[in-house]
Design a protein around this nucleic acid. Sequence first.
DNA 1: ACTTACTCTGTGTACGTTCACAGATCGGCC
DNA 2: GGCCGATCTGTGAACGTACACAGAGTAAGT
Lengths: 340, 340
Amino acid sequence: MVTNPGRRKRATIHDVALEAGVSRGTVSRVVNDEPYVSAEARIAIEAAIEKVGYVPNTAARNLVMQRSQAIGFIVHEPHSLFLEDPNIGEILLGANAALSLADFQMVCLIIDSERDTDRVARYLSGGFVDGVIVVSARKNDPITRIIEKLGLPSTFVGHPPDLRQLPFVGIDNRSSARAITERLLATGRTRVGMIASALDRDSGADRLAGFTDALGPLFDPALVARVPFYAYADGVAGMRALLAAEPGLDGVFAASDAVAAGALEALREAGRSVPGDVGVVGFDDSAWALRCQPLLSTVHQPAAGLGERAAESVLAQLRGEEPELGGILLTTPIVWRDSA
Amino acid sequence: MVTNPGRRKRATIHDVALEAGVSRGTVSRVVNDEPYVSAEARIAIEAAIEKVGYVPNTAARNLVMQRSQAIGFIVHEPHSLFLEDPNIGEILLGANAALSLADFQMVCLIIDSERDTDRVARYLSGGFVDGVIVVSARKNDPITRIIEKLGLPSTFVGHPPDLRQLPFVGIDNRSSARAITERLLATGRTRVGMIASALDRDSGADRLAGFTDALGPLFDPALVARVPFYAYADGVAGMRALLAAEPGLDGVFAASDAVAAGALEALREAGRSVPGDVGVVGFDDSAWALRCQPLLSTVHQPAAGLGERAAESVLAQLRGEEPELGGILLTTPIVWRDSA
DNA sequence: ACTTACTCTGTGTACGTTCACAGATCGGCC
DNA sequence: GGCCGATCTGTGAACGTACACAGAGTAAGT
């Protein structure tokens, strides 16, 4: 073998058959746990497998079976995701756990450039995976088009791209935001504001809508600070703006934990105590929440659960089941700590 | 096809040949960009490929070529890694970039349980990948054994497991620690201590050794606080211990950025100003470094570079080149900010 | 005219597996 | 004894590709 000088040739099913003194068919039956094999043949074959160190060749098996027993996990724009969003790791683990249980192999594909897009497209078309889980697809994503064209079973984590009818798993940002705001109001706060991030994304807009729902007639647009991103710096800026608009503020809902952390910094700077003067709540239950002083009350994102459900959804499609039309929304428990 | 009801049958090289009115061989030559194809045949075949929507079947190609054009990226203990270590994402991206350039597909394999180990082992044995990059292998890792047994080209990121002679890519913790300590001393500090973490790991022990190197005759064992982990809480505890041992301390080298962040908290608590009273430096240049107040001076871990070099090392082995015996050590620039 | 080289094309075989089918053996039952 | 079903085994396809080889055609050099 010229291409791989150091690799010794692998044992095939034929070698096992020869060693055990039976035919390929019988060996295949033993390997795949099928009935109609005599006890003595089974024992001889198992011994032969052990002796020659036989491992089935997956390429050959895939070729004839027309499946790969693997599911792709596609991550787009990893720079921002890996650095900002600790959830991606959890989603990945959740998906891996569910696939593992079904004896499927997860294959994690990173798209980081134009070049990657083409290669991943080829990879998907090449029959390497039986289905895909897509995290953070963009609008007009060529990968999305290819998945549709191939008819590849797929489930998206987060909101579905464009307006296509593709199965997805997500959380209900709106009712979660409403719930934590109501919980904050229940502590007796009367002037509650929000630092609203990323209003150009579904998640950001929905969190603001939930906040509005919770306040009802009490809602005051002057108590909403609009900031571009979910980041720490946005929290600092947003909080300063809110304090300037309403010094008597006694509660704040921050659109993310990082934003909440920034808000805490601005409050400290302004000499307000938390939760004494102002109650603060966040969203995500990320690492930030435990890094804050005081510990943050927040909405828990069931990241592992999202991955798990996405995996199950793909597997269900593989079994021929129809995916839920409206997508799957997971519940988001409130984690009440010290900041409110 | 019973297993995949919705999938329409894929076009094969045969369909293309029929459509273009040539033979399989000629189509194969066009697909693989080989010479000795007439212009008209090439045009007809390209049109036919477009028309029938042909994509090469990777399983079939792998079977006959005895390779997969894919490299595995194995991550062990992802829980701790994804949560504690932001570097893993960078390493992944660096490796992906290098593999992408060589037109290899990266396949990311997560090992999260016993079950995963077995499945990944089967996956590797199944010829799905031509080589592997291993991040954070443990001692006596069954995966390591399997890699050795298969003779699979591999490169480890970080220190090599056990005492085996396997290629690896890492950083020189010792000289990096020495360099940043010397830089701290150069600011005129005279009583410099260290919070030393994870002395049971190579990285932790080496960082302490580098610190000792830098101080030379000035080294005072009383100014080393030993803490178990690289975490924030360890930094708080370590700093308190150091201040108790030597109130006149004017510089600290923390074994990681998280530890440094904890140290800053303890210093604030004790009423010391940074960098006025005490200069603080960390290690890693992780997200912590920019989250600290003041911004942390630290050692930059070239995480993307580690991934890149690991990928290149595996590709070199695939070309039949001998791997460097002592492993590859990358340089670690010092990032000087405000904390010292 | 005859070799020689080069260009282009089609065919057969191999890769390692699964599956359908055809036999073979055996026991029980009418 | 003949028939049937159950159990067990071997054989020949097929999956879709790459590669070696043979052969045809063309052009140039001797």
